[in-house]
Computed example of a mutant assay.
Amino acid sequence: MRKLWVILFLLIFLLSLPTFGASALEKIKKAGILKVGSDVAYAPFEFMEGDKPVGFDIDIANEIAKALGVRLQVINTSFDGIIAALKAKKFDMIISAMTITEERKKEISFSIPYYDSGQIIVIRNDNKDIKSEKDLKGKIVGVQLGTTGEISAKKLKDQVGIKEIRSYETIPEAFMDLELGRLDAVINDLPVSLYYSKNNPKLKCVGKPFTKEQYGIAVRKEDTDLLRKINEILVNLKKTGKYKEIYKKWFGTEPID
């Protein structure tokens, strides 16, 4: 009988020890929190409403947390350092209007695409000179640091002869300098540019998107179980119509299938 009690005690002790080999998904469920990194200055995908982060990406992240049975915690992180912060385990995943690129895929893993986008030019409403990329010759162009907008601008600098590229920590700073006349144009993602120009009569988008891009949710390369679950949830959100509902809420139209 005494041996039985010793065995039971050992079993209880062993079960109470931390599970060092637990997967990312198991750790999230055990903690009861899904920590998400996002640069919360990119409306309508992520922005602050009072002291609360809101937006298209935030709603998607909330649905993922709900499907996992945990609560969501958004950690506001500069886009330029967001991949490094993910790799340093500051949070579990990134959802921040991040374009899937081959370069980024060397460092992190992406979910299936959840949004189609592209780069477009934004100018002041009184500007009659800039109608497309070729008209950026000799101009000063603003971009957000670490984005595909910055990459596109650097390519155009060689191709069309942009005079200067100014990189900003956040895209609202670039739009502000454009409005104040410190920039001739801003290169940025189409949906965000449309959102800003719609809400600011001094700005307008010109031309057509000159790149094709897709956004993905990013996780660490080793977190394969979490990635599988995120993909499963994204597929289900589209199947149930919840994705369409969120899309229409933030963009005023239904997604193109």
Rank of each mutant, 00 (worst) to 15 (best):
I120E: 07
I121S: 03
I121L: 08
I121F: 05
I121C: 04
V122D: 09
V122T: 15
V122S: 15
I123P: 03
I123M: 05
I123Y: 03
R124W: 11
N125M: 02
N125E: 07
D126Q: 07
D126H: 02
D126C: 05
N127K: 04
N127G: 00
N127D: 13
K128D: 07
K128V: 11
D129K: 14
D129N: 12
I130A: 07
K131H: 06
K131N: 04
K131I: 02
K131M: 02
S132F: 13
S132M: 12
E133C: 14
K134P: 03
K134F: 10
D135V: 08
D135R: 01
L136K: 07
L136M: 08
L136R: 06
G138K: 11
G138A: 09
K139A: 00
K139T: 00
K139M: 04
V141K: 10
V141S: 06
G142K: 08
V143A: 06
V143Q: 08
V143I: 12
Q144A: 13
L145C: 00
T147A: 02
T147C: 03
T148R: 10
T148V: 14
T148E: 15
G149L: 14
E150W: 13
E150Q: 15
K154M: 10
K154D: 01
K154P: 00
K154L: 12
K155I: 09
D158R: 09
D158W: 02
D158Y: 05
D158F: 03
D158E: 13
V160G: 00
G161A: 13
G161Q: 14
I162P: 10
K163M: 11
E164Q: 14
I165K: 13
I165T: 10
I165G: 09
I165L: 13
R166C: 00
R166L: 14
R166D: 01
R166T: 09
S167T: 12
Y168F: 15
E169L: 14
T170F: 12
T170D: 03
P172Q: 14
P172E: 15
A174F: 05
A174Y: 06
M176I: 03
M176S: 05
M176K: 13
L178D: 05
E179L: 02
E179K: 00
E179Q: 02
E179R: 01
L180I: 01
L180V: 01
